[in-house]
């Protein structure tokens, strides 16, 4: 088998690679290693040498970085990535299953007539071909796909894998690339990055989620109170977001965030598989719901059937009492 080149689209802030990027690099390493292949990361957004170092110590051999941060535009980004894929003859491209990754990956797949599996939990090489396990049927099932065309493009669900332990002895080079901007067809009128809560959700150790059962946006105030006591981050079910009770960045689920906390307290959340797909990685789920038939009780390890409006204040009191 010839050496497999794997490309990872890394996302980062100016100083730090996102956790999912490091998961992608870990997966890339796993796929490239057996054939003695190479892992390259592309960073098109804001970055610094810190980010490069992080990616390299996380498993990348090379970082292709835009000299200047390229504002997100799917046409520009896809053209730039596509060019790099051809140039490096990458056999696999791994995106995060994020709002940009799931925006770019299918476009790239069609642009290059490759094959694609989105929403993956893992991938492996079998008989020289990429085999990916992905989440489907609203989180109820998994499918395993063999990707038969080159390149194989994958989007990886955040929280699916553990990043490699950083190895600072690793060395790698950073090569600068330039954007292919002539393809731009869309105009950005406004970008609102309203809060960082969404990003914190994915790394939080304790998460409190609210759903339709809260009865309205006011219920979330009670959750925030509890969250501040526990150092937790508040998230929400899809319905609560769709009803406008909280911003979509708080959504936990198949089309929202994937969380992997030690403790997830789900309040007034029925537990549709859509939602559970986003919190299945929680170590302990506590469900509080007035509806005893809510399917969440089947997924929770601790359940309370009751009215959250009565319960939460008592829980707050109790924590207060224990802390004092």
């Amino acid at each position: 088998m010839s050496a497999l080149r794997v490309l990872v689209l890394a996302e980062s802030s100016a100083t730090e690679a996102t956790p999912i990027s490091l998961e992608q690099v870990a997966l890339a390493r796993k796929l490239a290693e057996p054939s003695g292949g190479q892992v390259s990361a592309i960073v098109l957004g804001p970055r610094s040498s810190d980010v490069d170092r992080q990616l390299i110590s996380g498993g990348a051999d090379k970082v292709y970085a835009a000299e200047e941060s390229i504002s997100y535009d799917p046409d520009v980004w896809v053209a730039t990535i596509s060019h790099l894929v051809s140039e490096t003859s990458a056999g696999v491209v791994i995106f995060g299953h994020t709002s940009s990754g799931s925006d770019l990956a299918p476009r790239l797949a069609f642009r290059l007539s490759g094959s694609i599996a989105t929403n993956c939990e893992n991938a492996a090489i079998e008989n020289g071909m990429i085999v990916a396990t992905r989440v489907c049927y609203g989180g109820k099932a998994r499918s395993v796909l063999r990707l038969s065309r080159n390149p194989a493009i994958i989007t990886l669900r955040p929280g699916s894998l553990t990043p490699l332990a950083p190895d600072t002895s690793r060395v790698g080079e950073t090569k600068s690339i330039s954007a292919n901007t002539e393809k731009a067809r869309s105009k950005l009128l406004e970008r609102k990055q309203e809060d960082v809560r969404g990003l914190r959700l994915e790394t939080a150790k304790v998460v409190i989620g609210g759903g339709r059962g809260l009865g309205g946006p006011e219920g979330f105030k009670l959750l925030e109170q509890l969250a501040s006591k526990l150092g937790a981050v508040v998230g929400a079910s899809r319905v609560a977001c769709d009803l406008g009770w909280c911003p979509p960045s708080m959504q936990i689920g198949l089309t929202g965030k994937t969380i992997t906390p030690d403790l997830y307290i789900a309040v007034g959340i029925s537990g549709a598989s859509q939602h559970m797909a986003g919190c299945a990685g929680a170590k302990t789920i506590v469900a509080i719901n007035s509806d005893a038939k809510a399917p969440i009780f089947a997924d929770a390890s601790i359940g309370i059937v009751g009215d959250y409006k009565e319960l939460l204040p008592k829980i707050l009191d109790e924590i207060q009492r224990l802390n004092s």
Partner: peptide, 30 residues
Amino acid sequence: ASQELIRLYVPIKEKHCEIIGGTSAGETAQ
């Protein structure tokens, strides 16, 4: 075809929910 479905399955859940219920909200919270 660009892909081939090798397997479709339902992941197994091995969870058992312990229901906590006190005689009052206060007790349950405790």
